[in-house]
């Protein structure tokens, strides 16, 4: 059975697209046929992060309007033949999104894909509401920072009230917390909210903690999702995310600073 998973956060710049790209790629690596949809009409970015920006011909809005078939618009990933990207429209406006139009595309994708990942835009406008409407599960991407936590809380409220599952009184969307840009050293000095703090505030299960890392920027520079950078901490953390999502019981990694830095040793704490 296919699953629709929205990657959302409310706040912008917290790592939704990075997470969507790595999550979808990770699922494909594990052998699941996966489609990842960019819902950010007018500010398309998933194609860049996935490294397929030069192969975009048709987009999501073209499909909704019947100007292209889904097959024509889906871009097959170069590295994984079971991974497809449906880019957002760069020129149209988001009024093209209707529940019927988006629903038809999702239904068609459900017929041939195991996982459909919806990369939500920031905010709580139409694009974001459409991205979460059809979700079975949700990844709530949160930075350890006050405005991000508050916005995540707001999005959780919307998932519970404005989604298809909520409106039709079905089993609620399964919510997973993904903390990104986590810095163990800043948590240790009391400058950053701890994972426990965030979990307590939001009250949902923790799926993964992605450490702050330069590897994420390198990955986006190169157009290769960071999950494929197997030596980096964040790449490994995203691999763990995928494993846990698929039901494996793995301990959280990268929560503590590995060892005392040279300076710290020198000054002796």
């Amino acid at each position: 059975m296919s699953k629709v998973v929205v990657v959302t956060s409310g706040k912008g710049g917290v790592g939704k697209t990075t997470t969507s790209a790595s999550f979808a790629t990770g699922l494909a690596i594990r052998g699941h046929k996966t489609a990842v949809i960019d819902f950010d009409v007018g500010l398309r970015n998933l194609d860049l992060i996935m490294g397929c920006e030069r192969r975009v011909v048709y987009d999501f809005v073209n499909v909704i309007n019947g100007e292209a078939s889904l097959k024509q618009a889906l871009i097959r990933d170069k590295a994984h033949n079971n991974l497809f990207i449906l880019p957002a429209s760069q020129t149209r406006d988001k009024d093209a999104f209707t529940i019927e139009g988006v629903g038809k595309v999702i239904d068609e994708l459900r017929e041939s894909f195991d996982y459909i990942i919806c990369d939500s835009p920031a905010g709580i406008e139409k694009g974001a509401m459409m991205a979460l409407y059809f979700a079975d599960e949700a990844l709530i991407v949160t930075n350890p920072e006050v405005s991000s936590v508050r916005d995540s809380d707001r999005i959780l409220g919307l998932l519970g009230a404005k989604s298809k599952r909520a409106e039709e009184d079905l089993e609620p969307i399964k919510e997973h917390l993904v903390v990104t840009r986590y810095s163990a050293s800043r948590v240790e000095t009391g400058e950053m909210l701890t994972i426990e703090d965030i979990q307590e505030l939001l009250g949902i299960d923790l799926l993964a903690v992605i450490p702050e890392s330069g590897a994420v920027l390198h990955a986006s520079n190169a157009g290769v999702p960071v999950v494929r950078d197997e030596v980096s901490n964040s790449g490994q953390a995203y691999q763990d995310l995928v494993s846990r999502f698929l039901g494996e019981d793995l301990p959280m990694r990268f929560l503590d600073t590995k060892k005392k830095s040279f300076l710290k040793r020198l000054f002796g704490t």
């Binding site: 006050v146 948590v187 009391g190 400058e191 505030l201």
Partner: peptide, 30 residues
């Protein structure tokens, strides 16, 4: 023993707990 590093980071130590308290209040109100 207080290290120099401790001294340097001391004045910012409490901001995470302030953040948590503020969030607890605003979220429960919302």
């Amino acid at each position: 023993m207080m290290s120099i590093l401790d001294y340097l980071t001391r004045r910012r130590k409490k901001t995470a707990s302030v953040a948590k308290e503020r969030l607890q209040l605003i979220l429960s109100r919302e």
